[in-house]
């Protein structure tokens, strides 16, 4: 065990100096105040059991390593529990910054196939978790309406929801994410 730890070199080509500015413009306004204390990583429920490190993610973002940050599956291990945001001594809205980076990742074409599926359900039914036969039966047995009084019962309301998703570009964004696995 005498080998030195392999040196990690950051290449200038991998640095996008405008990345942090874009994050700040999108709302992660205090991110430059990060002092790398690691409080965020230490309170993270995902970080307890995976290699996901919030501190590392923020550091890489500050270095401008846009490609590495946006393509990393680790970006999707945050449960958005907001504990890091509550505890950050620099009052950086860590969770919000992660959500902004996820938005950027999706626009760059990095989306997990399961998340595309959830989005397709929302586009088709107006619900990320739509009703199914078993639960319609369960509702009836409980004395509830077989179909809940949501978009599921109102085709015109569903059409309105779908039109909103077309207008915001969501439908095109999701359909542009390639085919499902």
């Amino acid at each position: 065990m005498t080998d030195a730890i392999a040196r990690e070199t950051i290449h200038i080509d991998d640095i996008d100096p405008e990345f942090v500015d874009a994050l700040i413009a999108a709302g992660a306004d205090r991110i430059r105040a990060c002092l790398q204390c690691g409080t965020c990583s230490s309170v993270c429920p995902s970080g307890r059991r995976t290699a996901f490190r919030t501190r590392e993610l923020i550091r890489k973002a500050l270095l401008g390593l846009k490609g590495e940050v946006l393509s990393s599956p680790d970006l999707w291990l945050c449960t958005t529990c907001f504990t890091c945001l509550e505890r950050c001594p620099r009052e950086i809205k860590t969770t919000d910054a992660i959500i902004l980076m996820r938005n950027m990742a999706v626009r760059e074409g990095f989306m997990l196939p399961q998340h595309r599926k959830t989005s397709m359900k929302l586009i088709a039914t107006g619900h990320a978790v739509p009703i199914n036969d078993a639960n319609m039966t369960k509702r009836e047995e409980l004395g509830l309406d077989r179909v809940p009084p949501t978009v599921h019962s109102h085709p015109d309301a569903l059409e309105q929801v779908q039109e909103i998703m077309r207008r915001t570009g969501f439908t095109a964004l999701i359909e542009g994410q390639g085919e499902e696995d």
Partner: peptide, 29 residues
């Protein structure tokens, strides 16, 4: 009182993570 025709809120962890303007528009609806 029933909120007839309501949709997904939409979910903060997923839809907000994918496209915040869409999440905001549907939540506002």
């Amino acid at each position: 009182e029933e909120l007839e025709g309501a949709s997904c809120c939409p979910a903060p962890g997923v839809i907000r993570s994918f496209d915040e303007p869409t999440w905001l528009a549907l939540a506002s609806r």
